[in-house]
Amino acid sequence: MRALDRELKRGAAELMILALLDAQPRHGYDLSKLIEARSGGRLKFHIDSLYPLLYRLEEREWIKGTWVEKPDERRRRVYKLTPAGRRVLADQRRTWDAFVDAVRQVTGGEHA
């Protein structure tokens, strides 16, 4: 069961990051805080899982990071969703919904 748990988490992490970037471009620290805040502290990303995940998504060309410098602010690497990433997100959302739905139907006992 631990394996399933890990896989689910991994898929879920991707989905979450894509979903968060869907709304607007964000930098890494921003993402980690948002995930922690929105999950009510139940989910927390370590720096050594978050960034490798970002780089992996970037290598797959689902997201793209660029260095942005604003006056009076530190130089940051900001990630935004690519069109490919947008498609993957839509796809994953559907699959996820179908999967959750299917699991519910199977585990929810006989339906009418």
Binding site: H46, D48, P52
Partner: peptide, 18 residues
């Protein structure tokens, strides 16, 4: 403590193309 461990970063980056 943001780091999970001393080696996690390296092992997670290793599979990447970069």
């Amino acid at each position: 403590e943001e780091f999970q461990s001393g080696t996690a970063l390296a092992s997670r980056l290793a599979p990447l193309r970069q």
